[in-house]
Simulated assay, not measured.
Amino acid sequence: MKRGFGSDNHSGVHPKILKSLSEANIEHAPSYGTDEWTERAEKSFKNHFGEQTQVFFVFNGTAANVTALRALAKPYQAVFCSDVAHIHVDECGAPEFMAGLKLYPLRSVNGKITVEVLEKGYIRRGDQHYSQGQVVSLTQPTELGSVYSVEELKNIIAWAKERKILVHIDGSRLSNAVMYLKKSFKELTTDLGVDIVSFGGTKNGLMMGEAVVILNQELARDFKYIRKQSAQLPSKTRFIACQFEAYFKDNLWHDIATHAHTKALELYTAVRDITGVSVREVPQSNAVFVTLPPAWIKILRKDYFFYVWDEHSFECRFMTSWDTQSEDIQGLAKKMKEIRP
């Protein structure tokens, strides 16, 4: 299949990460996270998030989000999130079904929620007829590719902490935000008071596997039971852990994020002035949102796959990844110019 722009999890495994899998595939190793690869990967996470960090590997992003939310909220409680948040739009109801909790989607602007909309949703406290808001879940970067600034995060987290509300970061692409803001993982999470991060792997060059990064030690105490009960305890944990070890080694994570963002900027520049094309904004992560004439979509997707984000406006999402090449971008732009009116 030709390289396209459907998603950053359409790409293959980064060669350095693939090599780590081969190197871990030797003889026997203890199971369920008691191996040396898991120990080293956990140390890498501690180096980036702080010594109090506890890490639990799971198989996929939905599991990372659901198990994290199970640790944060009881079934009679609720999670505030954006109306375009992945946990609300793209988890097939898994948080509600598996965690038993309720999601409160709030009106977003360019994917972001604010203290003002949170305050409007913070109602009926103590009312036994109403699910009690207990968690704020922020997607960083958002589903629309925008990045919460440090100041925006500080304001929301301060609001939450004042009300004893816990904070979850859906960070399937958190590395992209860290790179864009030129901050450390710790500065964007631990130092601000974030409680749990769902940390992405598959969208960042891994074959499979995500990490639930618990920064609030009280929440980590019983998490091993939540993970097991959720059918997410990997027996051969080393094959997830070794990938994260390679991901952090020599700042590979930063190289991957930088490449993906650079190519997103290149794509933005290549298509923004084409007649008939409307681009949402300069990309802050590795997503470019482009509105196209409906007749173009089927033609373009024959060679360069992408998703239609909004079936009403025909706004489309183009994602770049660690292996996106300039020739892919120029080929797409050339095709657009060939079919324009």
Rank of each mutant, 00 (worst) to 15 (best):
161 K>V: 04
164 K>Q: 12
165 I>Y: 03
166 L>V: 14
167 V>L: 04
167 V>S: 15
168 H>T: 00
173 R>Q: 08
176 N>M: 10
178 V>A: 05
178 V>E: 01
181 L>F: 04
181 L>C: 13
182 K>H: 09
182 K>Q: 06
184 S>K: 07
186 K>N: 00
188 L>W: 05
190 T>I: 06
191 D>N: 04
193 G>R: 05
194 V>G: 00
194 V>H: 01
195 D>A: 03
198 S>V: 15
200 G>I: 04
200 G>F: 04
201 G>K: 13
201 G>M: 12
202 T>E: 05
204 N>R: 15
205 G>E: 02
206 L>C: 07
206 L>D: 11
207 M>S: 02
208 M>P: 02
211 A>G: 03
211 A>M: 12
211 A>L: 10
212 V>R: 05
214 I>F: 14
215 L>D: 10
218 E>A: 15
219 L>M: 07
221 R>F: 10
221 R>N: 09
222 D>Y: 15
226 I>E: 13
227 R>G: 08
229 Q>F: 08
229 Q>L: 01
232 Q>F: 05
233 L>Y: 01
236 K>E: 05
238 R>C: 14
238 R>E: 01
238 R>L: 13
240 I>F: 15
240 I>C: 10
241 A>Y: 03
241 A>W: 14
244 F>I: 14
249 K>V: 08
250 D>Q: 03
250 D>H: 14
252 L>G: 14
252 L>D: 11
252 L>P: 12
253 W>R: 12
254 H>C: 01
255 D>G: 13
257 A>R: 01
257 A>P: 04
258 T>R: 14
259 H>F: 02
259 H>A: 01
262 T>L: 07
262 T>H: 15
262 T>C: 10
263 K>G: 01
264 A>F: 13
265 L>C: 15
265 L>H: 05
268 Y>T: 13
272 R>I: 05
272 R>W: 00
272 R>S: 05
273 D>G: 11
275 T>H: 03
276 G>L: 02
276 G>R: 09
277 V>G: 03
280 R>P: 06
280 R>C: 14
281 E>H: 07
282 V>E: 06
283 P>L: 05
283 P>V: 13
287 A>H: 12
288 V>C: 02
288 V>G: 01
289 F>P: 06
290 V>M: 07
290 V>I: 12
290 V>A: 00
291 T>N: 12
292 L>C: 04
292 L>Y: 03
293 P>R: 02
296 W>Y: 10
299 I>Q: 11
301 R>W: 04
301 R>D: 02
304 Y>N: 02
304 Y>T: 01
304 Y>E: 00
305 F>N: 10
305 F>V: 12
306 F>W: 08
306 F>K: 09
